[in-house]
Design a protein around this nucleic acid. Structure first.
Lengths: 316, 316
DNA sequence: GTTAATTATACTCATACTGAGAATAATTGG
DNA sequence: CCAATTATTCTCAGTATGAGTATAATTAAC
């Protein structure tokens, strides 16, 4: 290995650049959205520079410049630098990705930037209205063919096993957190645009819009993190307006999780954790009994080190 | 902001270097240990170079070179690049830290490398034999003084609040996962060697050995991550020999968590999750009834996407 | 070779949490 | 006033959890 003979090198490491990438999420009208540039083909990003105080502030600068949207909640996702990401062997790029949560505001985003629906990129991930038909009609048959095409018996078994877990086949049950595993399987099976140019129309519409480089992979990582995190930290509230009804809160959680939850149990969970307090007002914006308005009790962030927003079970 | 006027710069980002840092953990004789160099003052680390295939493989190279210890399980911890970490403003270092799990083997580590006990660096974190006396006798009084010394009323309240949560005061209960928060409080209060040169002997022995730069902070991050992760992923087994008794497994978990667990409940949890299978043999190495030997069912990693090793409640 | 000490393993029980569904309340639109 | 719609509250069974007790199989001591 080359590195073993290197001194604690300086010249070598100088041809390294760092790039900051943001998965900026909002939920609008019950639809989860992600901020993009290049007409939905890329995530906001830019190089980390000497002028930046920290990685986070560098990210803020780039995103605010590219999208005119200020960032609130930020958390780091992952850092990677795989060699095969870029062709040039004399220069390495380290990518540091972040998840950011905000609300889609009135201010129309700047020129290049647009909000896009999550599920345009991941149509198989939205189970709120039942299992998407294309999953069983297109994706699973194609994956089966891919598994069968494996070289030997044990590899076929391994592929089938991974499929079954990731897509909830053979009694495994759908696990909404396995977003990245599912995308990676589709990538390996060359069923997504990033892995294969000439997809036919069925497959193309079943496996969604593709993105530049590995941006869709990073988005998958962000969605997976968020789907996991809403279960044990009160981060949903970053996506909510100051006042909201419990149903609005529920719809937001469902939008993120891609599945429905049991309404009375959801209420019970939120209330027993004392995450919200009544605002005293009600909405009359819709038909039916008016709903009480609530606000997030910001105090819980001080009172408790770990507060949870667990997700009740699914509901047909 | 300077960055807003920059082009998607090249020259600027070229004075960036990346450093890989490992928190390599093992548990030996019920004592959690971390691999260090520089006689316990630093974590193994080295620059990321062009020759490295990926960040992980670069880390493996450096750690194996510095410690002669091969790495098994690896997961990324955090990436940071705060300006105040290093004095030089013309050059930025990005640090990418990893958590690695292994077993302390017969092969004595290479010259500079030594295994050190976790709790030498974090004496206040070991609650297996009750609350460490120095916590209430030294640390809490000092923190109280620090809180009282705050400029204004609201800042005093805020400091007290953080103290209460982090150290489990005023009915908050000890939460073993808040390792980083506790270290940061002690740092802010200038009670650790990294923040203050002339600590008196009481404080010094209560707040443990210090390390180079922010290495102890990174270690705290690793411990926190591990304490959290053993509750929902079967990672403990990376630290176990191939065959072990349930009590040995329990002692390992207790060593990591820094607190004792209820034995019958621990067994119930492990067995109902089918994480282990009987090896058919028993140990006679100790007094008392011989214990059955178990092995980890590696199949669970294939069967389930998320397997858990939850931690039962504490036990006096 | 019986007993005490020690560790392993198996039960018990009250309580809390969860999933699922039913029942009741307050609206709007005919 | 009635139907439709949404909000809100309860009930109930099943499961998980915290805590403690009882029994089993050893070794060490006498």
């Amino acid at each position: 290995m080359a590195s073993k003979t290197n001194r604690r090198g300086n010249e070598l490491s100088h041809s390294i650049a760092a790039e900051l990438i943001a998965v900026l999420v909002a939920v609008t009208n019950g639809q989860p959205r992600v901020m993009t540039i290049d007409s939905g083909k890329a995530l906001p990003s830019g190089p980390f520079e000497l002028g930046h105080r920290s990685l986070q502030s560098g990210l803020r600068d780039w995103v605010e410049q590219q999208t005119r949207h200020p960032l609130g909640y930020i958390e780091q996702l992952y850092t990677f630098a795989d060699r095969d990401r870029v062709g040039d062997a004399s220069r390495r790029i380290i990518s540091i990705s972040y998840l950011a949560l905000t609300r889609e505001e009135q201010s129309a985003p700047a020129g290049k930037a647009t909000w896009c629906d999550w599920y345009d990129y991941f149509p198989w991930e939205d189970h709120r209205h039942g299992v998407p038909p294309a999953l069983y009609q297109v994706i699973v048959p194609r994956l089966n063919a891919w598994a069968d095409a494996a070289d030997n018996f044990s590899m076929r078994g391994e592929r089938r096993q991974r499929m079954a877990i990731a897509f909830g086949l053979e009694g495994h049950g759908w696990n909404e957190e396995l977003v990245l595993q599912r995308y990676e399987l589709l990538y390996e099976a060359a069923l997504v645009g990033e892995a294969h140019r000439g997809l036919n129309n069925d497959v193309r519409s079943a496996t969604g819009s593709s993105m530049t480089a590995d941006h869709r992979r990073i988005l998958a990582t962000g969605i997976a993190r968020l789907r996991s995190k809403i279960k044990y930290r009160p981060v949903v509230f970053e996506l909510m307006p100051p006042l909201f009804t419990l149903l609005q809160l529920q719809r937001t959680v469902e939008a993120l999780a891609g599945r429905l939850v049991h309404k009375p149990n959801f209420r019970r969970l939120i209330e027993q954790q004392e995450l919200v307090e009544e605002a005293g007002e009600t909405t009359a914006e819709t038909v039916g009994r008016p709903a009480k308005l609530f606000r997030f009790r910001h105090a819980v962030l001080d009172e408790r080190a770990v507060a949870g927003t667990k997700l009740p079970s699914s509901r047909a």
